[in-house]
Simulated scan of single mutants.
Amino acid sequence: MDWNEIREKARENMKGYCRGCKRCDGIACAGEVPGMGGTGTGNGFIENVKALDRWKVKLKTLHDVLKPDITTSLFGFQVKMPVLAAPMTGLKGNAGGYLSEREYDMMVAEACKNVGTIFMSGDANDKDMYPAGIDAIKSTGVLGIPFSKPRTVEEIIEKAKIAKEAGAVAFGVDVDGAGLIMMIKSGQFVGPKSRKEIEMIVENIELPLILKGIMTAEEAMIAAEAGVKAIVVSNHGGRVLDHTMGTADVLPDITKAVGDKIDVLVDGGVRTGIDVLKMLSLGAKAVLIGRPIMIAAHGGGREAIEFYLNKVADELYQAMILTGCKDLKNVPEVYKAS
């Protein structure tokens, strides 16, 4: 199996919704929402990739690191790589409808279980999107984390209960979906969450809570003080607000602010193992990857997803050897290019 062949097949199956670019950087698909691009000018998506590009590593080969350990622990579970499948929905409108929500969730869940990492599922205006992820977690037994959009507190608590019953290891809220017009127009409430509301959710669910869509140190501290277990530094792939900063640029201030109070995860522009290592060096515990996994699914199904995840893991392993990094507790320093 070859990544270029997977991309070409995905381009065909996604019917123009994604071009399967050699580098998935948001330029060719700028403004294509619905579609795989970033909203408006596409700057938020593009900036995620540029922000990662600005950080550099130092090549080191005079050391004794021969077999780096790329495993990590999340939510009390050992995973084989610090790379998780991001929650993705809306395949019909964003990817052409070649795969149904259930087909996609099932193949990603199976792939994540097979490679030993965590599967995350999403939520949106279609009432079947959340159950599709829940059913994938139930049927595969994968380490799974369903995400709810920022609905009413009562609706979120109910979705967390469903997640618990399905055997999920944690539960998330996509707080950066607060301004999703498509959901508001369909008569479904989404909106920002106050600290008091977050505390209510924490107090009334039986799973660790993750907030996805944190982009400032101030809001990271609010989440930590409200009892949240983890945050995802994310601008929703640049799909909800134009001209946001790249996640790699805001990550250091956020991780410095919260210290070891909560786990900090991150997404946005991560494509390769060296991208993963950079994000870890900037303070993240693990990364989420979305668009490339969507491309893999459309280019070769479960096997292609496993191929891609293992490819990223191999690249991370190699990058750790070439930076003298023996494990994820001893990541190398990174340097911002001027």
Results as ranks from 00 to 15, higher is better:
G90Y: 11
L91K: 03
G93W: 01
G96L: 08
G97Q: 08
G97P: 10
Y98T: 13
Y98A: 10
L99N: 01
E103G: 04
Y104H: 13
D105K: 02
M107Q: 15
C112K: 02
K113Y: 02
K113H: 09
V115M: 11
G116L: 09
G116C: 05
T117D: 02
D123N: 11
D123P: 00
K127P: 15
D128T: 15
M129C: 14
P131Q: 12
P131F: 06
P131G: 11
A132W: 05
A132N: 05
A132M: 06
I134H: 07
I134D: 09
A136T: 08
I137C: 12
V142L: 07
P150W: 13
V153G: 10
E154A: 14
E154K: 14
E154P: 03
E155D: 15
E155I: 01
I157Y: 09
I157D: 05
E158F: 14
K159S: 09
K161G: 13
A163Y: 10
E165H: 01
A166K: 04
G167F: 14
V169S: 00
A170P: 07
A170Q: 07
A170R: 03
G172W: 10
V173H: 11
D174R: 01
D174T: 07
D174L: 11
V175R: 02
V175W: 12
D176M: 07
D176I: 10
G177V: 01
L180H: 14
M182Q: 12
I184T: 14
K185T: 03
S186P: 00
G187A: 10
Q188K: 12
V190G: 06
G191Q: 05
P192T: 11
P192C: 02
S194M: 11
K196G: 06
I198S: 13
V202R: 01
V202S: 04
N204Q: 04
N204P: 03
I205L: 04
L209Y: 03
I210E: 02
L211D: 04
G213A: 03
G213E: 10
T216Y: 08
A217G: 09
A217S: 15
A217Y: 03
E218H: 10
E219C: 00
E219I: 00
M221N: 13
A223Y: 10
A226M: 05
I231N: 10
V233Q: 10
V233G: 05
